[in-house]
């Protein structure tokens, strides 16, 4: 405690973040959640700081939760999207970053379709870069809020069987979950069609399945990823009907999991495809709570990277 300090650090992914750093973020997030649940949600630790949300891809929950997180902390937050920016006039990403960074910006929260774009951004400009999702690479704050939600209900990740189901190959959430949860001691299992989950991924320290029941056997947590409907056109699976029948998470297949299994979904959901409606809204589901936790975790990340410290000044 106290030796870990994230001040001035960019958060590009969880691959290069240590267990101690993850624990610090989750500890601070717990304090932030109290703020989110309170009547007066303003704690002005980032007063006088400015944050730019640079979202080159559509987003509802991530962008708005980063925006609220910044505002609850007292920072000035603006949003930039490609359709409303000079990117449509052909401005390069480097020049967009330069422009944004020279407005007294302390941090840039970015989402980009290109894997590695946040790392590239750190080489172009000085502000702290927080990755809000880069292509199919990483989405660290999503994994942090997944872990936070699990901790809230289970107390620890150590030894838990966590199943990540769906389109792993194209999922930035899956990669961040794998890096983060493995460090926290969870036993990660991936399941999905052979076209969307490659056996080679086992070299990342996980177990790969193509049979949903086998994967769910004794599971403590199931994280159901969104199926990207456009994938049908790349012959990655035949029909939504078949996907739902063979890989969909429903009450029936969940019988293989532990009784107190918890269900996560990063959203947006395709109810009836990867997840049955009665599962999405069941007691086991943490999906709505995840959204609330998303704000707390993002407050913790912005606080720790921009303001620094170990959060001991915050009320318990």
């Amino acid at each position: 405690m106290g030796t870990v300090n994230l001040k001035g650090r960019s958060l590009l992914g969880l691959e290069h973040v240590s267990k101690e750093e993850i624990e610090l973020i989750l500890r601070v997030a717990k304090k932030m959640k109290k703020v989110v649940l309170s009547d007066d949600k303003k704690i002005p630790y980032l007063k006088g700081k400015s944050i730019v949300n640079l979202f080159m891809e559509p987003s509802t929950r991530t962008r708005s939760s980063f925006e609220l997180a910044g505002k609850y902390l007292g920072a000035d937050v603006i949003n930039i999207t490609p359709s409303g920016s000079s990117m449509v006039k052909g401005e390069s990403f480097r020049d967009t970053l330069l422009t944004v960074s020279y407005m007294g910006t302390d941090a840039i929260v970015m989402r980009h379709k290109a894997e590695g774009a946040p790392l590239y951004a750190t080489k172009c400009v000085k502000p702290i870069i927080v990755n809000a999702g880069d292509g199919a690479h990483e989405h660290p704050t999503q994994a942090l809020l997944d872990m936070y939600s699990i901790l809230e209900r289970k107390g620890s990740l150590e030894g838990l069987k966590v199943v990540i189901a769906g389109d792993i190959m194209h999922s930035r959430v899956a990669r961040s979950d794998i890096y983060g949860m493995t460090k926290m001691g969870a036993d990660i299992h991936l399941v999905g069609p052979r076209t969307l989950v490659y056996p080679e991924l086992e070299k990342m320290g996980v177990t790969v399945h193509h049979d949903i029941r086998e994967a769910l056997e004794g599971a403590d947590v199931v994280n159901v990823l969104r199926i990207q409907l456009e994938r049908i056109h790349s012959a990655l699976y035949p029909t939504n009907r078949e996907y739902a029948r063979i890989f969909g998470i429903n009450k029936e297949v969940l019988k293989a999991a532990k009784k107190d299994v918890m269900i996560l979904h990063p959203g947006p959901m395709n109810r009836g495809l990867e997840i049955a409606p009665d599962v999405a809204y069941s007691d086991e589901s943490m999906i709505q709570e995840q959204v609330r936790n998303g704000v707390s975790v993002r407050m913790a990340v912005l606080y720790l990277t921009i303001h620094g410290g170990d959060g001991s000044e915050l009320a318990d």
Partner: peptide, 8 residues
């Protein structure tokens, strides 16, 4: 494996 890890 590298491309899988990088998501590329």
């Amino acid at each position: 494996l590298v491309s899988y890890e990088l998501g590329v």
